[in-house]
């Protein structure tokens, strides 16, 4: 009996304490990501995405709390108006899949670990506050631009959308413009 428990504990310990492996070479990672992107577009006509799921889950939450508010808001109405289910969209299974995929790769390569990545000169609290603010700013911008780095830059980039290319340049421009002023966060 005890050995069995030990084995069980040993199994989980082994699963979560696999030796940490290095990340793959960036060009190799990019090639695989490009093939995933191609297969998605080839079979479904849709690319990849992430922030769409965030806003649909948001619309779903608002619809749970205040359905009449959704019906008065043209932006939310498109996703959750009337008896529309904002979660019944292809982006949701993609979102779920990427959680599973990220977790599997992390597990396989020994990188699943409760931790906070930050620059050496700031506290965890500062990092968390900035992550929240940055996340809010990013998704606000992503909604405005109708897509984020995956839905616009990656997908629109590969399908040669003129607007996506312009937008992609602006993401890099925005980040580089501010990087110097927030260097304390990272360096």
């Amino acid at each position: 009996m005890t050995t069995q428990t030990n084995n069980k504990a040993g199994f989980w310990a082994a699963l979560f304490n696999r030796p940490t492996k290095d990340y793959v070479h960036p060009y190799f990672g990019g090639i695989i990501l490009g093939i995933v992107l191609f297969l998605s577009i080839f079979f479904t006509g849709n690319g990849l995405g992430a922030s769409g799921a965030v806003s649909r889950i948001d619309a779903w939450l608002v619809d749970l709390v205040a359905p009449q508010h959704v019906d008065q808001n043209s932006y939310l109405l498109k996703m959750a108006g009337g008896d529309k289910n904002p979660l019944d969209d292809w982006i949701l299974p993609v979102f779920l899949g990427s959680i599973l995929g990220g977790f599997s790769s992390g597990l396989f390569n020994g990188r699943v670990k409760l931790e906070t990545n930050k620059g050496p000169n700031i506290s965890n609290q500062t990092r968390w506050t900035m992550a929240f603010i940055g996340g809010a700013i990013f998704v606000y911008g992503a909604r405005m631009a109708r897509g984020c780095t995956s839905g616009q830059a990656l997908t629109g980039g590969a399908t040669l959308s003129a607007g996506s290319w312009a937008l992609m340049m602006m993401i890099f421009a925005g980040a580089y413009a501010v990087a110097y002023f927030v260097r304390k966060l990272w360096l």
Binding site: L48, G49, A50, S51, V54, S98, N117, M130, A131, F132, I133, G134, G135, A136, I137, F138, V139, Y140, G141, A142, R143, M144, A145, R146, C148, T149, S150, A166, L167, M168, M169, M170, I171, F172, A173, G174, A175, Y176, A177, V178, A179, V182, L185, W186
Partner: peptide, 18 residues
């Protein structure tokens, strides 16, 4: 404009949604 806002969010928050 959304692109610039995203860039700012990227460097402050350290991620993009994906």
């Amino acid at each position: 404009l959304g692109g610039i806002i995203m860039g700012v969010g990227f460097i402050i928050g350290g991620f993009c949604p994906g």
